[in-house]
Deep mutational scan, measured.
Amino acid sequence: MISLIAALAVDRVIGMENAMPWNLPADLAWFKRNTLNKPVIMGRHTWESIGRPLPGRKNIILSSQPGTDDRVTWVKSVDEAIAACGDVPEIMVIGGGRVYEQFLPKAQKLYLTHIDAEVEGDTHFPDYEPDDWESVFSEFHDADAQNSHSYCFEILERR
Protein backbone atom coordinates (compact mmCIF):
# COMPACT_ATOMS: atom_id res chain seq x y z
CA MET A 1 0.00 0.00 0.00
CA ILE A 2 1.25 3.47 -0.88
CA SER A 3 0.50 6.26 1.60
CA LEU A 4 1.26 9.98 1.50
CA ILE A 5 1.96 11.87 4.72
CA ALA A 6 1.97 15.68 4.77
CA ALA A 7 1.29 18.75 6.89
CA LEU A 8 -0.80 21.34 5.05
CA ALA A 9 -1.54 24.94 5.96
CA VAL A 10 -4.43 26.87 4.41
CA ASP A 11 -4.35 26.71 0.58
CA ARG A 12 -2.47 23.37 0.78
CA VAL A 13 0.87 25.10 1.53
CA ILE A 14 3.45 22.50 2.60
CA GLY A 15 6.65 24.49 2.44
CA MET A 16 8.55 27.71 1.90
CA GLU A 17 12.16 27.73 0.71
CA ASN A 18 12.67 24.05 1.61
CA ALA A 19 11.30 24.46 5.15
CA MET A 20 7.98 24.12 6.93
CA PRO A 21 6.84 27.61 8.00
CA TRP A 22 5.43 26.59 11.40
CA ASN A 23 6.50 25.00 14.68
CA LEU A 24 4.47 21.89 15.51
CA PRO A 25 6.37 19.30 17.57
CA ALA A 26 3.13 17.28 17.81
CA ASP A 27 3.11 16.93 14.03
CA LEU A 28 6.73 15.76 14.03
CA ALA A 29 5.78 13.10 16.62
CA TRP A 30 2.77 12.07 14.47
CA PHE A 31 5.08 11.84 11.44
CA LYS A 32 7.59 9.69 13.31
CA ARG A 33 4.89 7.40 14.75
CA ASN A 34 3.39 6.80 11.30
CA THR A 35 6.64 6.37 9.34
CA LEU A 36 8.91 4.47 11.74
CA ASN A 37 9.97 1.01 10.49
CA LYS A 38 8.54 1.75 7.02
CA PRO A 39 10.35 2.78 3.85
CA VAL A 40 10.09 6.52 3.12
CA ILE A 41 10.27 8.01 -0.37
CA MET A 42 11.21 11.66 -0.81
CA GLY A 43 12.51 14.01 -3.46
CA ARG A 44 16.01 15.47 -3.48
CA HIS A 45 14.89 18.85 -2.11
CA THR A 46 13.17 17.19 0.85
CA TRP A 47 16.28 15.06 1.41
CA GLU A 48 18.48 18.16 1.38
CA SER A 49 16.17 20.01 3.80
CA ILE A 50 16.28 17.09 6.27
CA GLY A 51 20.04 16.78 5.83
CA ARG A 52 20.42 13.21 7.08
CA PRO A 53 18.73 9.82 6.74
CA LEU A 54 15.66 9.41 8.94
CA PRO A 55 16.58 6.74 11.50
CA GLY A 56 14.58 3.52 11.70
CA ARG A 57 13.39 3.86 8.11
CA LYS A 58 14.74 2.87 4.70
CA ASN A 59 15.32 6.24 2.98
CA ILE A 60 14.70 6.30 -0.78
CA ILE A 61 15.47 9.49 -2.71
CA LEU A 62 13.69 10.05 -6.04
CA SER A 63 15.70 12.37 -8.27
CA SER A 64 16.62 12.73 -11.92
CA GLN A 65 20.10 13.64 -10.62
CA PRO A 66 20.98 10.96 -8.06
CA GLY A 67 23.43 11.92 -5.36
CA THR A 68 26.39 10.09 -3.91
CA ASP A 69 25.34 9.66 -0.27
CA ASP A 70 25.44 5.89 0.23
CA ARG A 71 23.42 6.04 3.47
CA VAL A 72 20.28 6.23 1.30
CA THR A 73 18.96 4.58 -1.87
CA TRP A 74 18.87 6.81 -4.97
CA VAL A 75 16.30 6.12 -7.71
CA LYS A 76 15.25 7.91 -10.91
CA SER A 77 11.60 6.84 -11.32
CA VAL A 78 8.42 6.16 -9.38
CA ASP A 79 8.52 2.47 -10.36
CA GLU A 80 12.16 2.20 -9.28
CA ALA A 81 11.26 3.84 -5.94
CA ILE A 82 8.43 1.37 -5.33
CA ALA A 83 10.66 -1.58 -6.27
CA ALA A 84 13.40 -0.34 -3.91
CA CYS A 85 10.94 -0.60 -1.00
CA GLY A 86 10.69 -4.35 -1.37
CA ASP A 87 7.73 -6.40 -0.16
CA VAL A 88 6.36 -4.28 2.69
CA PRO A 89 2.81 -3.64 3.92
CA GLU A 90 3.06 0.17 3.61
CA ILE A 91 5.26 2.65 1.74
CA MET A 92 5.31 6.23 3.07
CA VAL A 93 5.77 9.11 0.62
CA ILE A 94 7.00 12.15 2.56
CA GLY A 95 7.36 14.87 -0.09
CA GLY A 96 7.94 17.26 -1.56
CA GLY A 97 5.34 18.71 -3.87
CA ARG A 98 6.41 17.06 -7.13
CA VAL A 99 6.87 13.67 -5.48
CA TYR A 100 3.39 13.91 -3.92
CA GLU A 101 1.98 14.72 -7.39
CA GLN A 102 3.68 11.66 -8.88
CA PHE A 103 2.45 9.28 -6.17
CA LEU A 104 -1.07 10.63 -5.48
CA PRO A 105 -2.72 8.59 -8.30
CA LYS A 106 -1.18 5.41 -6.81
CA ALA A 107 -1.94 6.22 -3.16
CA GLN A 108 -4.48 4.29 -1.11
CA LYS A 109 -4.11 6.35 2.08
CA LEU A 110 -3.38 9.96 3.07
CA TYR A 111 -2.10 10.96 6.51
CA LEU A 112 -2.76 14.71 6.63
CA THR A 113 -2.13 17.30 9.30
CA HIS A 114 -4.37 20.29 8.57
CA ILE A 115 -2.77 23.37 10.12
CA ASP A 116 -4.90 26.40 10.94
CA ALA A 117 -2.43 28.91 9.52
CA GLU A 118 -2.27 31.17 6.51
CA VAL A 119 1.38 31.24 5.51
CA GLU A 120 3.36 32.17 2.44
CA GLY A 121 4.52 29.12 0.58
CA ASP A 122 6.25 28.08 -2.60
CA THR A 123 5.32 24.39 -2.39
CA HIS A 124 1.80 22.95 -2.25
CA PHE A 125 0.21 19.57 -1.71
CA PRO A 126 -1.50 18.51 -4.96
CA ASP A 127 -5.19 19.16 -5.35
CA TYR A 128 -7.17 16.00 -4.70
CA GLU A 129 -10.84 15.12 -5.17
CA PRO A 130 -12.41 14.87 -1.67
CA ASP A 131 -15.17 12.58 -3.00
CA ASP A 132 -12.51 9.98 -3.84
CA TRP A 133 -11.49 9.71 -0.18
CA GLU A 134 -13.16 8.66 3.06
CA SER A 135 -12.05 10.07 6.39
CA VAL A 136 -11.36 7.16 8.75
CA PHE A 137 -9.69 9.16 11.55
CA SER A 138 -9.80 12.79 12.64
CA GLU A 139 -8.40 14.39 15.80
CA PHE A 140 -8.37 18.16 16.47
CA HIS A 141 -5.88 19.92 18.76
CA ASP A 142 -5.75 23.54 19.91
CA ALA A 143 -2.52 25.52 19.75
CA ASP A 144 -0.55 25.33 23.00
CA ALA A 145 2.78 26.34 24.51
CA GLN A 146 4.68 23.92 22.24
CA ASN A 147 2.57 24.07 19.06
CA SER A 148 2.22 27.42 17.31
CA HIS A 149 -1.13 26.71 15.61
CA SER A 150 -4.22 24.58 16.07
CA TYR A 151 -4.18 21.50 13.87
CA CYS A 152 -6.12 18.37 12.96
CA PHE A 153 -4.70 14.94 12.21
CA GLU A 154 -6.73 13.13 9.56
CA ILE A 155 -6.37 9.78 7.82
CA LEU A 156 -8.14 9.34 4.49
CA GLU A 157 -8.57 6.09 2.60
CA ARG A 158 -9.34 5.91 -1.10
CA ARG A 159 -12.96 4.92 -1.72
Rank of each mutant, 00 (worst) to 15 (best):
S3L: 01
S3F: 01
L4T: 01
L4F: 15
L4I: 15
I5S: 00
I5A: 00
I5H: 01
A7M: 00
A7N: 03
L8V: 04
A9N: 15
A9M: 02
A9K: 00
V10M: 00
V10W: 02
V10K: 00
V10C: 04
D11Y: 02
D11F: 02
D11N: 04
D11R: 14
R12Q: 15
V13S: 07
V13H: 02
I14T: 04
I14C: 10
G15S: 00
M16C: 14
M16W: 08
E17H: 02
E17P: 02
A19Q: 07
M20T: 01
P21R: 03
P21F: 00
P21W: 00
W22F: 10
N23E: 08
N23F: 05
L24G: 15
L24C: 06
L24F: 09
L24V: 15
P25F: 12
P25G: 05
A26H: 11
L28K: 00
L28C: 02
L28G: 02
L28R: 00
A29I: 02
W30R: 10
W30N: 13
W30H: 15
F31I: 00
K32L: 10
R33I: 13
R33Q: 14
N34T: 06
N34C: 09
N34S: 11
N34L: 08
N34E: 07
L36P: 00
L36V: 03
L36Y: 11
N37E: 14
N37H: 08
K38H: 06
K38L: 08
P39F: 08
P39V: 14
P39K: 04
V40W: 00
V40A: 13
I41A: 04
I41M: 04
M42C: 02
M42Y: 15
M42Q: 12
M42L: 15
G43S: 01
R44D: 03
R44Y: 06
R44N: 15
H45I: 02
H45L: 05
H45D: 03
H45F: 04
T46G: 02
T46V: 00
W47F: 15
E48K: 14
E48Q: 15
E48N: 13
E48F: 13
S49G: 07
S49R: 00
I50C: 10
G51E: 12
G51L: 08
R52M: 15
L54V: 05
L54Q: 01
G56D: 10
G56N: 10
R57V: 00
R57K: 01
K58S: 11
N59T: 13
N59C: 14
I60K: 00
I60N: 01
I60R: 01
L62Y: 04
S63Q: 06
S63A: 15
S63T: 15
S64F: 14
S64N: 14
Q65K: 11
P66I: 13
P66R: 14
P66V: 13
P66M: 11
G67N: 13
G67W: 05
G67L: 13
T68H: 15
T68K: 10
D69R: 07
D70W: 10
R71Q: 08
R71I: 12
R71Y: 07
R71W: 09
R71N: 12
V72T: 10
V72C: 14
V72E: 04
V72S: 11
T73I: 13
T73H: 13
T73S: 12
T73L: 13
W74H: 09
V75I: 15
V75M: 11
K76V: 14
K76F: 14
S77T: 15
S77P: 03
S77E: 15
V78M: 15
V78W: 13
D79V: 11
D79P: 13
D79K: 11
E80N: 05
E80R: 07
E80A: 07
E80S: 09
E80Y: 04
E80K: 08
E80G: 08
A81C: 08
A81V: 05
I82R: 04
I82Q: 05
I82S: 04
A83D: 08
A83G: 07
A83R: 08
A83Q: 09
A84D: 05
A84Y: 06
C85S: 08
G86M: 09
G86N: 09
D87R: 09
D87L: 09
V88I: 13
V88N: 08
V88G: 10
P89C: 09
P89G: 07
P89I: 07
E90K: 00
E90I: 03
E90N: 03
E90R: 00
I91E: 01
I91H: 02
M92L: 13
M92Q: 04
M92Y: 11
V93T: 04
G95K: 02
G97N: 05
R98K: 09
R98N: 08
R98G: 11
R98T: 06
R98L: 04
V99T: 05
V99C: 13
V99R: 03
Y100A: 03
Y100G: 01
E101I: 05
E101N: 07
Q102G: 08
Q102T: 11
F103V: 06
P105R: 09
P105H: 12
Q108K: 09
Q108C: 06
K109T: 07
K109S: 01
L110C: 06
L112V: 08
L112Y: 02
T113G: 00
H114A: 10
H114E: 10
H114I: 13
H114N: 14
H114L: 13
I115Q: 01
I115H: 03
D116L: 14
D116V: 14
A117N: 05
A117C: 06
E120R: 14
E120A: 04
E120V: 07
E120I: 11
G121W: 00
G121K: 00
D122K: 00
D122S: 02
D122F: 00
T123W: 00
T123A: 15
H124G: 11
H124W: 03
F125M: 10
P126R: 04
P126Y: 04
P126F: 02
P126I: 09
P126C: 13
P126G: 04
D127M: 14
Y128V: 06
Y128P: 05
E129S: 11
P130V: 13
D131V: 04
D131T: 05
D132L: 11
D132T: 13
D132M: 08
D132C: 07
D132P: 10
W133V: 00
W133N: 04
E134R: 11
S135T: 10
V136F: 08
V136E: 08
V136C: 11
S138H: 05
S138Y: 06
E139I: 07
E139C: 07
E139Y: 05
E139S: 07
F140K: 14
F140Q: 10
H141S: 05
H141M: 06
D142F: 12
D142C: 08
D142W: 10
A143R: 10
A143V: 08
A143G: 07
A143N: 07
D144M: 04
D144C: 05
D144A: 05
D144K: 04
D144Y: 03
A145K: 08
Q146L: 07
Q146T: 08
Q146C: 12
Q146D: 10
Q146Y: 07
Q146R: 05
Q146M: 09
N147C: 05
S148M: 00
S148P: 00
S148V: 00
S148A: 00
H149C: 06
H149K: 04
S150V: 05
S150E: 06
Y151A: 09
C152Q: 09
C152R: 13
F153M: 08
E154S: 14
E154F: 08
I155Y: 03
I155R: 04
I155L: 07
L156H: 06
L156W: 06
E157Y: 06
E157G: 08
E157F: 06
R158H: 07
R158N: 05
R158S: 05
R158F: 05
R158L: 05
R159L: 09
R159E: 10
R159V: 08
R159T: 11
